[in-house]
Design a protein around this nucleic acid. Structure first.
Length: 284
DNA sequence: TGCAGTGTTGCTTC
DNA sequence: CGAAGCAACACTGC
């Protein structure tokens, strides 16, 4: 489930290999992909790769941008594949042959003989080509990045206090702050010591401050660990991340709280999704 | 064996 | 208007 740390990892990987290459051809079996994609991108040169929230932007020449949102099970891979018995198989041994990397649904063939592929078991990912100038409009509903210099505590407090609803839901709201999903909202609230069901408007100044600090601490730690590979996530070279080994709360149901407060991690459902927390130090 | 669980986003419904 | 539910989809595990 690629959230900010996973997208950041993939984007950093792709930054090392893609710029300067040209797209020579495109293959896909996705039905809902815009039909013009192939026509638009073939012959284009890749200039720059960047992240916006959980979105990946691949800037091309002729003022075009390829926008990829990996949604739940999508991840971009850089490698070489060949068709064998009707299925794409990695031509290179190693992590790309991990079974989680076998759901190849889109391939960009590059000018150096390598390929950029979208692996996406559930085919939820969004891939669109748009004029670079349309990006602000595309992202009109996306909030600041947690690492934006402009996002001071005062600003963050104002945003959070202005939202109704439970704090976990507010943290996952991409229009509030961009990049946090189910895994990291659990992790952030555990570290901040705030109950996921607490209404955002009822948070004390100190609690908001703890959340504000926890966001950066958790996300930085997860980026260093190259993201969470709870199930399917892999980096651009097909390798697992390591943050799932350090989870405090997410999927830790029944385990002892790592704060050593005798709490046992509990799992509840909030708005149809799982939430994990320690009832001892995360009080309502 | 069949069905619940897995989570992101946007759309629909109330 | 806001909150809740669901569809898009495929595979795993109980």
């Amino acid at each position: 489930m690629p959230e900010l740390p996973e997208v950041e990892t993939i984007v950093n990987d792709l930054k090392k290999v893609l710029p300067g290459l040209k797209i020579r051809d495109v293959w896909t079996d996705l039905k809902k992909l815009p039909k013009n994609i192939k026509k638009e991108v073939v012959g284009r040169k890749i200039l720059k790769v960047e992240r916006r929230g959980k979105n990946i932007l691949i800037h091309l020449d002729k003022s075009l941008t390829l926008l990829v949102h990996q949604k739940m099970t999508g991840h971009l891979l850089y490698g070489k594949w060949q068709k064998k018995n009707g299925a794409w198989q990695s031509a290179i041994p190693g992590p790309l042959r991990d079974p989680e990397n076998r759901f190849i649904h889109l391939i960009f063939f590059l000018s150096n003989g390598w390929q950029l592929a979208l692996c996406d078991m559930r085919k939820f990912a969004k891939v669109v080509i748009l004029a670079t100038e349309k990006i602000p409009e595309e992202f009109r509903n996306i909030g600041p990045d947690p690492f934006d210099k402009g996002l001071s505590f005062v600003e963050f407090k104002k945003i959070v206090r202005g939202k109704s609803g439970k704090i976990k839901i507010v943290l996952m709201d991409q229009s509030v702050i961009a990049g946090i999903g189910n895994i990291y909202s659990d992790e952030i609230l555990w570290l901040a010591g705030v109950h996921p069901l607490k209404p955002a408007q009822k948070l004390k100044e100190e609690e908001i401050k703890n959340i504000y600090k926890a966001i950066k601490q958790i996300l930085n730690k997860a980026i260093k660990a190259r993201g969470s590979s709870y199930i399917d996530y892999r980096d651009a070279f097909g390798r697992k991340g390591n943050y799932q080994k350090m989870h405090y709360a997410y999927q830790q149901t029944g385990k002892k709280c790592k704060k050593k407060d005798n709490g046992i991690i509990k799992k509840i459902r909030i708005a149809g999704r799982s939430a994990h927390f320690c009832p001892t130090h995360q009080k309502l």
